[in-house]
Amino acid sequence: MGIQFRLGPNDHKQVEDFLSREHAGTDAITLDTKAARHQAAAAAAAVEAGLRVYWEPAAERLADEGFGLDKLPLWTGRPYGINALAEDRSARAALVDLTVEKHPALVTHVTAPHFYVTDERTARLNVDLAERTRLAVGKDKPTRAVITVSTAAASRLGTTFAADLAAEYAGAGISDLEIRFSPLGGDDEGIRKIRTVFGVLDQFREHDLSVTLGLSGNIGRAAVAMGHADAYSVGLGMLERVNHAQTMARLRKEPDPDKEQGGGAVGGIYLSRLGSTVSAKAAQQLLNHTDIRTRVGCRIGSCRNSVTGPLDNRWAHYLHSRSSEMAETLRRPQQWRGAMEIDRLTEAISLRDRVNQHYLSDDVHKLRTRTLRSLIDEIEHEQQQAS
């Protein structure tokens, strides 16, 4: 149990150093789709620490036209058609063989190819691909499945379908599964969506599957604390929410030839007491202000010698702060964790309101609190139901 970190193209050295020193609270790492060949040392450090190592095939990005798809390892010259794959067993076999072939040597599990779930056909296609992957790999390594599912579809198909799907994955011999809901995450989620997500996770855990809530910050942490998931995953200062439609829209947008295409996205800076990953500008305003910086700063790991440590090395800070808070949750008995989450979220709401009012300039995005309040309400609801 714990937190799983999904590496970006340039995160491997920070992750290698972190795992070589400490790893309490960390459950696994996921190597980058395109840069995995450069991340062998980070993978080796994870294996030595007894953690799981995954790789992200990113097949779900290859079902539509887009730019830069030729750089993805599973690209074969044209998008994959869901209907064609569902009807053609040889096409499914070829996709599985290519996926297995492209996996880096140091992974501990093989991740099956998967596509965005909007209906029953895609959901059952993913089950077939997962089982075929398990059979292709044999007993060499376990197979891991990933489901990226539309939250609207999850609500429309209902808990009965979720239970049936969970049974199908269990029947296919899959024991390790990551579920990503799209869209989910950020600071503006309501109780109904969170309750639907937790209900779907429960259906899978009832079949003794090891379930990760994928790419989800505060909701993922609460899901683990409340026993709805065994782990949650994030990037390093990013990938704390999922929006498949936005991701695909970016892929379909032709790159601007007048702009440099290198570099990629820059991760934010995680401030644990706020329960928020903020921009560098917002972090500077808070950590440079003597009224508030000790309330939102960090004094552990590489930040122990400076209250402004998160600004000095945002990657190392993100790793040690996220993993240490998860380790602290897991050290407590299960029956205490709900109260711990309520206390954490209540403090974060109070601090967010304070920094919004007094310490963030007008040109910086204010921190919303709807998701945190929804989580508190849901936890209290579950506590009342259990009493």
Rank of each mutant, 00 (worst) to 15 (best):
M1P: 08
G2F: 13
Q4A: 10
H12D: 14
H12S: 13
H12G: 08
D17I: 06
D17Y: 00
F18Q: 04
L19D: 12
S20A: 13
E22D: 11
A24N: 14
T26G: 04
D27S: 11
A28E: 07
K34I: 02
A35G: 06
A40C: 00
A46Q: 14
E48A: 14
A49G: 03
G50E: 11
R52I: 01
W55R: 10
A58H: 06
A59V: 06
E65Y: 08
G66H: 05
G66S: 00
D70V: 01
D70P: 04
L74D: 05
G77K: 06
A91M: 09
A91W: 00
L95S: 08
L98S: 13
T111N: 02
P113R: 15
Y116D: 06
Y116L: 10
E120V: 15
T122L: 15
R124Y: 15
N126V: 09
V127I: 03
V127P: 01
E131N: 01
R134I: 04
K139E: 12
I147F: 13
T148S: 13
S150W: 10
A153L: 07
S155E: 05
L157K: 00
T160C: 03
A162T: 12
A167G: 14
A167K: 11
S175Q: 02
L177D: 02
I179R: 01
F181L: 11
S182E: 10
D187L: 11
D188P: 00
I191L: 07
V197M: 09
L201D: 01
E206P: 00
S210P: 00
S210H: 07
L213H: 09
L215P: 10
N218P: 06
A223C: 09
M226W: 00
G227W: 03
H228F: 03
A229V: 03
A229K: 03
A231G: 10
M238K: 11
E240C: 06
E240Y: 09
V242Q: 08
V242D: 10
N243F: 09
T247D: 14
M248T: 07
A249T: 02
R250I: 00
L251Q: 07
R252N: 09
E254W: 00
D256S: 06
K259I: 08
E260S: 13
E260N: 15
Q261P: 04
G264E: 06
V266D: 07
Y270S: 05
L271F: 05
G275V: 00
S276A: 15
S276N: 15
S276C: 12
T277A: 07
T290G: 08
C298T: 01
I300M: 09
G301E: 09
C303P: 03
V307N: 09
V307I: 15
T308R: 15
A316T: 05
Y318A: 02
S321E: 14
E325V: 11
M326C: 08
T329F: 14
T329H: 12
R331D: 05
R331W: 00
R332A: 12
Q334R: 13
G338C: 09
M340Y: 10
R344V: 03
E347F: 01
A348Y: 04
I349L: 11
D353F: 04
S361N: 10
S361Y: 08
T371A: 11
L372W: 00
R373N: 14
S374W: 03
I379N: 01
I379E: 01
E380C: 01
H381V: 04
E382Y: 02
Q384N: 15
